[in-house]
Design a protein around this nucleic acid. Structure first.
Length: 595
RNA sequence: GGGGGUGUAGCUCAGUUGGUUAGAGCGCUAGCCUGUCACGCUAGAAGUCGCGAGUUCGAGUCUCGUCACUCCCGCCA
C-alpha cells in the first residue's frame, strides 16, 4: 500500500533550497533521482522541476524513516519532512545548486513506487529517440527537456506581455475550417452532420486574421497550432506553433519595427542576449547573388562571386557553354582550405549533386599558381582576372559552379552553408538576424503551366509594381519579408491586398477563375468590399525559434509530444484504425489498399 | 516517390575472413558497507542478434525482401 498524502503540505521545491533556509523545518515532494545506501547512512537525491536536493537518512536519528528508505528505488515518488541543515565540513558538493545543504529527514512517505525505468533519467545517458518517444513522459522528466519546456513557457509569456503592451489582442480562430487551394496539403476532418463534406485544419489563420482587421480589431495576435500534411524534417513537424500577428494601417516598415522589438524582448528574457536594432536587411535578389539562398547564415562570410563574364570566352567548354546559354558561373573562395584532401573535395562534389548540380570544379591556390583540373583551360589574363575578383591568396581553395542560375545559386549557396558548419565558422552562441525583403510576387510553375504565389495569394505587390501585373507579372515584387536567423527562416509575412480589384486580379494570375475564386474565397472578397483597412502581418515559427534559443538540433526537443518522421506518435500510437461504426457515421468507406 | 545511416541484454555499444557456449559498461537483483553525491566492494540474473526467406556442413556476420527510427532531395502558399 502506498502512503497517503494526508494533510502533508509541500513547503517549497527541491531545487529552491539554499543555505538561507538552514534550520527550517520543510516538507518536500518529488522523484528519486538516485539512492546511495551506505549500509548505515542512506542518501537520496530528490528531484522536482526546479532541481535536486539531497535527503540524508541516519538510522541513529530516525530509525523508522531510515528503514523506509531502504525500500526506495529510482523514480519512486516521495514526501519527506525534515530540517534543512548545513552539510558537514568537507562534504559540500559545489556541482549542485543545493550542494551546501541537505535535509535531515525525520518522516518519509512513499507516495508511489515506480517500475525500473527503461532508461536512466539523467542528463548523461544518450538514449535512442524511438525509446524516448515511446516513454515521452519519462524523457520529459529529464533535465534537458524540463529546461526546454520551461524556456518555451517563458518565451510565450514574454511574447504575450510584449504584444499586449503594443496594443495587440489575442483572439482565437477556428481549427475546423475550410480547405483552400494553393499551399500545403491540408489535413481533412470529415463532417458527420454534413455527410460527404470535410473541414480542413488550418495551415495558418491567414484569412481569419485578415477578417479580424476588416472587423476593426486593429492589432491581433495568437499563439496557435497550424497543420500541414507534408513530409517532416529535422526542423519541421506536421503540427507546429506560430506566433501569428496582424496589424491595421501599417506599412511594411511599421510591421518590421514592432516585430523586431518582440524578438529583442524574447532574446533578452530567454537567454539574456541584447539584440541590436534595427535588424539588418537584404533584398531577395541580393541574398541570392551573395549567398545563393534566401535564408543565408550571416555568421560567416564566404560569399558567392559571379564570374560568368570572365569565363564566357574561355576555352573551358563547360563554363563557356553555360555562359552562352544565359546560365550562371559562380564561385566561392574558401580561405585557407587548399589543405582539403581529394576525398573531401569528392564529398563536396557529392554534396552539390543533391541540389541538382552536375559537378563542382575546384582550384587550390599554390605558390606557383592554380593546382586544378581546369587550370589549363584558362589564359594567363583570365587567371589574373579570376584571382583578382576572387581575391585569392596562396592557400585558398576556389570552388566553381556552372549551371542554370537557379541551380548554380542554390547548389553553391548550400555548399557555402555546409562549409560554414564543417569549418566551424558558424558559432552556436552568435545570433545573426536578417530581414529578407522584396521577394518576387509570383513564380512560374512549369509543371502546372501557371504562376504560383511565392508567399501566398493575399500578398500585396509593391505599390509601384501593380501596373506590372498586367504587363510582366513575373517581374512584380511583393511587399513580403522573412526573418532569417542563423540560416533558419524563423518568420515571414507581408502587407496584404486590401483592394478587391487587385485581389481578383491576383486570383486571375494564379489561374483561379472568377467562379472558383468566388467559391473558395468569396467571403474574403466580400469582406474586402466592406471597408477593409490597409493591413499586414507576420507569423513566427515558435518551434524554430525555440530550437535556436535552446541550441537544439531537432524540433522534437522543443515540443512536448512530437511526431516521428512518418508523422506517428509512438506514445499514443496515433494515427490508428477506427471502427466500422465510426466510419459509417461519417459516411466513409475505405478503399482497399492496392499494391 | 527517391538517396544515405542505424537496428545485438532494460539502456549504450563491441562482435575479426562465415566456425566452439554471443561479450563489455551502465542499469537491475541479492549480500556487505555511517559522509556519499554518475558512491564503493562481492556475487547473480538477464538475448526472438528488428522480422521473413535464401545460400551454406555451419549465418549476428553473406544475398534478397520487409519493418521501425533517423538525415537529406522532392514537397512545405
Amino acid at each position: 500500500m502506498n502512503d497517503k498524502l494526508g494533510n502533508w503540505k509541500r513547503t517549497q521545491l527541491c531545487g529552491e533550497l539554499t543555505a538561507e533556509q538552514v534550520g527550517q523545518e520543510v516538507c518536500l515532494m518529488g522523484w528519486v533521482q538516485r539512492r546511495r545506501d551506505h549500509g548505515g547512512l542512506i542518501f537520496i537525491d530528490l528531484r522536482d522541476r526546479e532541481g535536486i536536493v539531497q535527503l540524508a537518512l541516519d538510522p541513529d536519528r530516525d530509525p523508522q524513516a531510515h528503514t523506509k528508505a531502504e525500500q526506495v528505488r529510482n523514480e519512486y515518488v516521495l514526501a519527506a519532512r525534515g530540517k534543512v541543515s548545513p552539510r558537514p565540513e568537507g562534504t559540500v558538493n559545489p556541482k549542485m545548486k543545493t550542494g551546501a545543504v541537505e535535509i535531515e529527514v525525520s518522516e518519509l512517505l512513499i507516495l508511489n513506487p515506480s517500475e525500473t525505468p527503461p532508461f536512466m533519467l539523467d542528463e548523461f545517458s544518450e538514449v535512442a529517440e524511438n525509446i524516448r518517444l515511446k516513454y515521452r513522459y519519462l524523457d520529459l522528466r529529464r533535465p534537458t527537456l524540463q529546461k526546454n519546456m520551461l524556456l518555451r513557457h517563458l518565451v510565450a509569456k514574454t511574447v504575450r506581455n510584449y504584444l499586449d503592451e503594443q496594443g495587440f489582442i489575442e483572439i482565437e480562430t477556428p481549427v475546423l475550417t475550410k480547405s483552400t487551394p494553393e499551399g500545403a496539403r491540408d489535413y481533412l476532418v470529415p463532417s458527420r452532420v454534413n455527410s460527404g463534406n470535410f473541414y480542413a485544419l488550418p495551415q495558418s489563420p491567414q484569412l481569419f486574421k485578415q477578417l479580424l482587421m476588416v472587423a476593426g480589431f486593429d492589432r491581433y495576435f495568437q499563439i496557435v497550432k497550424c497543420f500541414r500534411d507534408e513530409d517532416l524534417r529535422a526542423d519541421r513537424q506536421p503540427e507546429f506553433t506560430q506566433i501569428d500577428c496582424e496589424l491595421s494601417f501599417v506599412s511594411r516598415d511599421d510591421v518590421m519595427a514592432v516585430m523586431e522589438g518582440m524578438i529583442a524582448a524574447v532574446f533578452k528574457a530567454a537567454i539574456d542576449v541584447e539584440v541590436s536594432l534595427p535588424l539588418a536587411r537584404l533584398s531577395y535578389a541580393e541574398a541570392l547573388d551573395r549567398f545563393g539562398v534566401d535564408n543565408p547564415d550571416l555568421r560567416f562570410g564566404l560569399e558567392l562571386v559571379a564570374i560568368t563574364d570572365l569565363v564566357a570566352g574561355s576555352q573551358f567548354k563547360v563554363f563557356a557553354d553555360v555562359a552562352a546559354a544565359d546560365g550562371l558561373v559562380t564561385a566561392l573562395n574558401a580561405k585557407g582550405c587548399a589543405t582539403l584532401s581529394r576525398k573531401e573535395l569528392d564529398d563536396l562534389t557529392e554534396f552539390v549533386k543533391i541540389y541538382g548540380a552536375k559537378g563542382l570544379a575546384w582550384a587550390k591556390v599554390k605558390e606557383d599558381g592554380w593546382q586544378s583540373p581546369i587550370a589549363k583551360f584558362f589564359t594567363a589574363e583570365e587567371l589574373a582576372a579570376l584571382n583578382d575578383r576572387l581575391d585569392t591568396e596562396v592557400g585558398d581553395l576556389l570552388l566553381f559552379m556552372a549551371d542554370t542560375p537557379a541551380v548554380a545559386s542554390e547548389a553553391l549557396g548550400r555548399l557555402r552553408g555546409h562549409l560554414g558548419q564543417k569549418l566551424g565558422l558558424a558559432k552556436k552562441d552568435e545570433y545573426m538576424f536578417v530581414w529578407i525583403t522584396d521577394f518576387p510576387l509570383l513564380e512560374w510553375d512549369g509543371d502546372e503551366q501557371r504562376h504560383v504565389a511565392v508567399h501566398h495569394p493575399f500578398t500585396s505587390p509593391r505599390e509601384e509594381d501593380i501596373p506590372l501585373l498586367d504587363t510582366e507579372p513575373g517581374k512584380a515584387r511583393a511587399q513580403a519579408y522573412d526573418l532569417v536567423l542563423n540560416g533558419s527562416e524563423v518568420g515571414g509575412g507581408s502587407i496584404r491586398i486590401h483592394d478587391q480589384a487587385v485581389q481578383s486580379r491576383m486570383f486571375e494570375l494564379l489561374g483561379i477563375d472568377a467562379e472558383e475564386a468566388r467559391e473558395k474565397f468569396g467571403f474574403l472578397l466580400d469582406a474586402l468590399s466592406f471597408g477593409a483597412p490597409p493591413h499586414g502581418g507576420i507569423a513566427f515559427g515558435l518551434d524554430r525559434l525555440m530550437m535556436i534559443l535552446t541550441g537544439s538540433d531537432s524540433i522534437r526537443d522543443v515540443i512536448a509530444f512530437p511526431k516521428t518522421q512518418k508523422a506517428t506518435c509512438l506514445l499514443s500510437e496515433a494515427p490508428n484504425e477506427v471502427g466500422e461504426k465510426q466510419l459509417q457515421e461519417l459516411s466513409i468507406r475505405l478503399r482497399k489498399a492496392t499494391k
